[in-house]
């Protein structure tokens, strides 16, 4: 029994690995489609990201003359990190054998690793926009990272574990309890999600104005397969963040330990949640205006504050 469970777990883990990597561009397409609808455009269609990726993979990579090996390795590293991150978050079932390898704190570490590499790659060619992007990205990150950790701390303190499977177990499969602290944490988390995924109001994913760019400015020098991997990695990152949101704040429907029969339902629930989250993200982006770069610290400071308040309220109310 133990063995079959482990085998099934590994099978499930591999399925999720495959699922996330294939689904991530679709999610991106869905968000873009919703945005287009909200802006009264017809939109490129759901499958556009796949077409873009295919096109990019077919092209010849163009590199600057003095690009270092680090520049060429970074897309693979970033892609690997994001893939791993998205794959170990329990969104369908909690039996993921890889998941205990990296708890929530290590998850923050994975994101940081990818970010450091992409910022370094941005500085590699030595262009003005690349360093500008790297500098701004690090500005956003050093504020978002502690806030994200505080969000994780709140849920970890409630569930007495820093492992996502156990957190999901606590929230989804025990008696339903309203946690005010989690309400705070969720608001903070949405703000962090917007900032970390280069969405409005912190960054504009579809900008073509160099001086306002953050993420785009960092990857200006990438082309073809490298660009494809970086883009794919960002869609994986978005999926990973939304998955974290689902795992922490909306875990209902995720299949519990050894409960393999609940899997079809869990997949359906997941799809529903992702559709809703994508639409919500697009709606948020349609409603908010992009802010000046030096308002960003305030924005993220607020996120941090909310997370801290959640933590304090947890200590006061015990909930």
């Amino acid at each position: 029994m133990e063995n079959t469970n482990l085998t099934l777990g590994i099978l499930l883990q591999l399925c999720q690995l495959l699922l996330v990597v294939l689904m991530a561009p679709l999610l991106m397409g869905w968000v873009n489609q919703c945005r287009a609808w909200l802006q009264n455009r017809s939109g490129p269609g759901l499958l556009q990201p796949y077409c873009t990726l295919r096109k990019l993979f077919h092209k010849d990579a163009v590199l600057a003359h003095d690009a270092s090996p680090l520049f060429r390795m970074t897309p693979y590293i970033v892609f690997g990190c994001m893939w791993l991150a998205a794959a170990i978050i329990p969104i369908i079932a909690v039996d993921l054998p890889f998941s205990p390898a990296a708890d929530v704190i290590a998850l923050v570490g994975i994101f940081a690793l990818a970010r450091v590499f992409i910022a370094l790659a941005a500085m590699d060619i030595g262009t003005a926009f690349g360093t500008l992007g790297a500098r701004r990205e690090m500005l956003v990150s050093f504020l978002a990272e502690p806030a994200l950790l505080m969000v994780f701390f709140t849920s970890s303190l409630i569930s007495h574990s820093t492992q996502l499977p156990h957190i999901v177990e606590t929230f989804a499969h025990h008696e339903f309890v309203l946690y005010p602290s989690l309400a705070f944490a969720s608001v903070a988390f949405v703000m962090i999600l917007l900032a970390e995924n280069a969405r409005i109001p912190v960054d504009n994913p579809s900008t073509h104005l160099e001086l306002t760019m953050i993420h785009e400015a960092m990857i200006l020098e990438y082309s073809a397969r490298h660009l494809a991997l970086v883009e794919w990695a960002s869609s994986l990152k978005l999926l990973a963040y939304i998955s974290i949101g689902i795992a922490l704040f909306l875990p209902q429907g995720i299949a519990g330990v050894g409960n393999w029969n609940a899997l079809p339902l869990a997949v359906a629930a997941l799809l529903l949640k992702l559709v809703a989250a994508g639409a919500g993200l697009a709606l948020l982006e349609a409603l908010i205006a992009k802010m000046r770069i030096f308002r960003v610290p305030e924005f993220l400071g607020t996120a941090f504050l909310l997370a801290v308040l959640g933590l304090l309220i947890h200590f006061l109310l015990g909930a």
């Binding site: 025990h174 008696e175 309203l178 309400a183 909310l306 909930a319």
Partner: peptide, 27 residues
């Protein structure tokens, strides 16, 4: 957890109250 559901709601509302107070402070 043995806290009645209404109390949970009151807790939640209390937290929102605090949240709004902070929002006002930052507005």
């Amino acid at each position: 957890m043995s806290i009645p559901f209404t109390t949970q709601i009151i807790y939640l509302l209390a937290s929102i109250l605090l949240l709004v107070a902070f929002a006002m402070l930052s507005q």
